[in-house]
């Protein structure tokens, strides 16, 4: 298939950006979206124009490194990551617009690459269970009901990609944060720090410039790992309890 691409080009964090139009021909439907961009980049390099910068690493939907707003949708039209999106989702003659994540808390570094380090700082503020190496009790000494373990696992599958933030009109990271808070809150090991965790993480979230949640739900629709909106309700519930307990 032959495609027209409209891509955001921006030379650096302070530079102004603009949409540029490119043509890519002979795209196979078995290619992934990023392989299609590889082909474009080979073409640009050969023609003396700098390749388009974009993030990717695992290319199998697990590292959370890839991003991209594709025709206005985070990770494009399917419920998956951009690297797992295949060209069979597009048709010959399509025009595709490709932009970086748009959010105040994720400034653009170059072209389609943004700075998501705010997510690391949210985790630093409390997204963990304190357990120094060597101090752990025998693993089976604390049974965890199978249902809780399965649910905790489901929330722990968040890949930290930031699609939820990019999709949210408020630029909120509540889904990302809620997934972690709910995962750790379901496990017996997560109880001792449960209330301080939610307060500290929410504090950091706000300080990073992420917006508030107004229950629009775009985040859950965009999430490639199908993290449900419920985690935000859980987050709010935990936050209320924590405040009640004086945290």
């Amino acid at each position: 298939m032959n495609l027209t691409l409209k891509i955001w080009r921006q030379a650096g964090p302070q530079a102004p950006g603009e949409m540029k139009t490119y043509q890519v021909d002979d795209v196979s439907e078995d290619m992934s979206f990023l392989e299609m961009l590889d082909v474009l980049n080979e073409q640009l390099n050969a023609g003396g124009e700098e390749p388009v910068a974009f993030d990717s690493d695992c290319r199998e939907g697990i590292c959370g490194n890839c991003s991209l707003m594709i025709n206005g949708e985070a990770h494009g039209p399917e419920v998956t990551t951009t690297c797992q999106l295949h060209m069979r989702s597009f048709a010959d003659g399509d025009t595709i617009t490709i932009e970086p994540w748009r959010a105040d808390a994720f400034p653009v570094i170059r072209d389609l690459v943004t700075d998501r380090s705010a997510f690391d700082r949210i985790i630093q503020s409390g997204g963990y269970i304190s357990a120094n190496t060597g101090s752990a009790p025998e693993a089976n000494s604390v049974p965890v009901p199978r249902d809780d373990a399965t649910k905790a696992f489901n929330f722990a599958t968040c890949i930290g990609c930031g699609a939820c933030v990019a999709a949210c009109p408020n630029g909120s990271a509540s889904l990302f944060m809620g997934a972690k808070i709910t995962q750790l809150g379901l496990l017996p090991q997560g109880q001792p720090e449960r209330w301080s965790r939610v307060v500290d993480m929410v504090g950091q979230h706000d300080a990073e410039g992420f917006g508030g949640c107004t229950n629009i739900g775009e985040c859950a629709t965009a999430c490639p790992k199908e993290i449900p909106l419920d985690v935000i309700s859980q987050l709010n519930k935990d936050l209320r309890t924590a405040i009640k307990h004086g945290h």
Binding site: I129, A131, T133, P143, P145, F153, L187
Partner: peptide
């Protein structure tokens, strides 16, 4: 160590 950190390994019905 991993269980103490909250790694959600697969479990049997007995937990």
């Amino acid at each position: 160590q991993c269980v103490a950190q909250g790694v959600p390994f697969a479990r049997e019905y007995g937990g």
